[in-house]
């Protein structure tokens, strides 16, 4: 293909580095930006620089924040006795939207996966342990593991439960089952089997 402009080419190459952006999409985005007024593009580039300058990881829970300690960790309305462990910051937002969980969070920023070269020390497990060992002032009574039900998520759950157990803190994991509003008939067989396995007594 004829290379029209090196500048365009650089932008397209940079855009393709983003997740789920292929070359075609990158080209479309680049062409869109070329047609935008200068102010719009400046706003975008400013926003991009600012996320690097202003966004940090919370000292306590490792979630993304603009302060030293995030809003959830510094709130006095949250129940400090419970920590919900998730893989990524977006999982925090998903759980927050439910408005049902009032405890604190801990974001691991990944899952253990030796195939991808990710060991326990490559995700924020140390930070979690630090919080638990510092328990004098925190008084944590439950760790709730809300990791993805993949092989890697399951392995991480097992690893965490092994190292937290000796500390005498209750470790739970969220249940797996049939989505609300969906039919049993339409649920895939593996989810259904897990739901049967995790059935609860009602009387």
């Amino acid at each position: 293909m004829l290379n029209i402009s090196d500048t365009l080419e650089t932008l397209v190459t940079e855009l393709t580095k983003l997740p789920s952006i292929g070359r075609k999409t990158a080209q479309r985005l680049a062409m869109f930006l070329i047609k935008q007024p200068r102010e719009e593009v400046e706003k975008l580039s400013q926003a991009l620089i600012e996320i690097k300058d202003k966004i940090k990881f919370c000292k306590t829970c490792c979630n993304i924040t603009e302060d030293e300690v995030c809003k959830i960790c510094s709130s006095d309305k949250r129940n400090g006795a419970s920590i919900c462990v998730v893989e990524e910051p977006q999982d925090v937002y998903a759980i927050e939207k439910t408005n049902e969980y009032k405890g604190l969070y801990h974001v691991l920023h990944g899952r253990i996966s030796p195939l991808d070269g990710v060991g326990p020390n490559d995700i924020r497990i140390k930070e979690l342990l630090y919080r638990l060992e510092d328990d004098e002032k925190n008084n944590i009574s439950e760790i709730m593991l809300a990791l993805n039900p993949t092989v890697e998520g399951e392995t991480t759950i097992l690893y965490l439960s092994k190292i937290i157990k000796p500390l005498g803190i209750k470790v739970t994991r969220i249940a797996r089952g049939i989505p609300i509003g969906s039919d049993i008939e339409l649920t895939d067989q593996v989810t259904l089997a897990k739901a049967i396995e995790g059935r609860v007594t009602i009387l």
Binding site: P114, P120, N121, T155, K162
Partner: peptide
């Protein structure tokens, strides 16, 4: 595959500290 990668990394000098490795191997 994960277990083989874990064992191989440990052998090839990409080793993680002994305690983490043991705990992880036990979990796997």
């Amino acid at each position: 595959k994960q277990k083989n990668a874990l064992l191989k990394n440990q052998l090839n000098g990409n080793a993680m500290p002994g305690k983490e490795f043991r705990n992880l191997l036990n979990s796997v």
